[in-house]
Nucleic acid binder design. Structure first.
Length: 435
RNA sequence: GGAGGGAUGGCCGAGCGGCCGAAGGCGGCAGUCUUGAAAACUGCAGUCCGGCAACGGACCGGGGGUUCGAAUCCCCCUCCCUCCGCCA
């Protein structure tokens, strides 16, 4: 949620920033007008209430003293109270309208985010290959150019037909070594983040609930705007999380944290649920897109000063995992027009899938400024007094299905078997080959 | 699912319809003392909104209501605890 005070102080600046992601300037003007009207009504209400308080005290004193003026004062107080009530009703209606609009107004892109309208304008920051030579699609062998759903079928790693029987399409069912590999990747990544300190303290492992309340979904910006993309259990009014970012962010919801508690570095494996409404038939083969998938997420609550360093750490950790897996990948600096709703600056990580012949997004590392924390009510004390709204940062390290897709293809040998990258072997019973 | 008990500041906890933004404690900050720390003592300090400020308003789980006036009385909801039932 944008800071209304910033809207007041610099409406043109906010409008210009939001215009970079395609928002019309009149939207901001509407917010500013509503805010002014709401404040005027609130002031009227406060003045009337101040009178009621003063008069009520006088009524009490007069009654005690047997002063006949008490009845008159009581009448005045009642009349003023009615005015306060009317002003209150107006102020509340205006506040609600303002909040309703703010909740569907996206965050302002950071000035450093590149200009652009869509995915084609994202900037490639760097590309990494296992051999160190510049990325070249043509360098991949014929044995690597087999789509992962064929590799998986060959070795019995996935049973997509059975998955569809149980739950419908885009609900993959993992079997045998495939299931084990998936579990191994999760355990390996969690251990890396929770024991390898990297540039700072390790990340605390959390196992949050995966069904959450509406307020939890609103805090991160997933509701109300993206309701159609979420699974909702109507009977209990619970939502299936689309990412661990949702419960992890709400861990600190409505809390006032000590500066010493920051940064709060959290790490979680969870299944993630996405309805993918409107994406039916688009890049949905095999593991490219599914309704339920496993992901390890890193999420931090931080001060403004700490936030960018943590974003860099998450990005470095995610890249580090892909390097250890020996998978070619590239980092994208998302342009203003392609940024997610709540984000100020996002780096996507895409892994090369030689069998599909495409870059696949496996992580999105975002800095939200104080946008999410304001929605979520996450504040911290500031040295020297006062409080500040926290910053939030998060990213996947990593989302597994597409990583596995790339792995099954890139590490496929001429004999059709798939090499298991060394760091994961201890997690899959020492296996060095699948098939 | 049934019965009962709770929800008050960063945390714990007291609170007669007006003198309650709220006792007390812990924790925090500053100082005295100390080589330093601890202890002890003294003092300061809730959060949010509006306002340059003076100041005004809101907030005692959430929402309604009664009243000139509600932390306090009434209604609804949510959450937590205990017991029973069910159960991985």
């Amino acid at each position: 949620m944008l800071d209304v005070r910033r809207l007041r102080a610099d409406p043109d600046g906010v409008a210009a920033a939001l215009a970079r992601r395609g928002l019309d300037r009149s939207e901001v003007a509407k917010l500013v007008e509503l805010d002014a009207a709401a404040r005027a009504a609130a002031q009227e209400r406060d003045e009337a209430r101040a009178d009621v308080k003063r008069l009520s005290k006088e009524v009490g004193a007069a009654r005690k003293a047997g002063d006949p003026a008490a009845d008159r004062l009581q009448g005045e107080s009642r009349a003023r109270g009615e005015q306060a009530g009317q002003a209150e009703a107006r102020a509340t209606a205006l506040d609600e309208e303002l909040r309703r609009l703010l909740l569907v107004t996206p965050n302002t892109p950071d000035a450093a985010a590149p200009d652009g309208a869509g995915p084609e304008d994202n900037r490639v920051v760097r590309t990494w290959t296992p051999t160190g030579v510049p990325f070249n699609e043509a360098a991949y062998q014929a044995c690597q150019r087999v789509p992962h759903w064929e590799v998986a079928a060959q070795h019995g790693l996935l049973d997509l037909e059975r998955g569809a029987k149980l739950s419908g399409s885009m609900f993959p069912l993992w079997r045998g070594a495939g299931a084990r590999l998936l579990r191994g990747l999760t355990s390996w990544a969690l251990d890396r983040h929770t024991t390898d300190p990297g540039p700072g303290p390790v990340w605390e492992e959390v196992r949050p609930p995966t069904l959450v309340k509406t307020a939890t979904m609103v805090a991160t910006g997933h509701l109300p705007k993206f309701e159609d993309d979420m699974y909702h259990l109507e009977r209990d009014d619970l939502w299936a999380i689309p990412t661990a970012e949702v419960p992890l962010t709400s861990l600190a919801r409505d809390e006032l944290l000590d500066a010493a508690d920051l940064p709060l570095k959290l790490c979680a494996y969870t299944p993630c649920f996405r309805r993918e409404a409107g994406s039916a038939g688009r890049d949905t083969r095999g593991l490219l897109r599914s309704h339920e998938f496993d992901k390890v997420e890193l999420m931090a609550v931080a001060t403004a000063e700490q936030a960018l360093g943590l974003q860099a750490e998450i990005l470095a950790r995610a890249e580090g995992l892909l390097r250890e897996l020996g998978l070619a990948h590239r980092i994208l600096d998302l342009c203003a027009g392609d940024l997610a709703f709540s984000s100020m600056r996002t780096f996507d990580i895409e892994v090369w899938s030689p069998g599909v012949g495409a870059w696949l997004e496996v992580s999105s590392v975002s800095w939200y400024g104080d946008y999410q924390a304001r929605r979520a009510g996450i504040r911290h004390r500031v040295e020297g007094g006062g409080t500040a709204v926290a910053h939030t940062v998060n990213g996947s390290a990593l989302a597994w299905p597409r990583v596995v897709a790339a792995l099954l293809e890139a590490h496929r040998q001429e004999d059709g078997s798939v090499r298991v990258p060394p760091p994961v072997r201890p997690w899959v019973g020492g296996l060095s080959r699948l098939g």
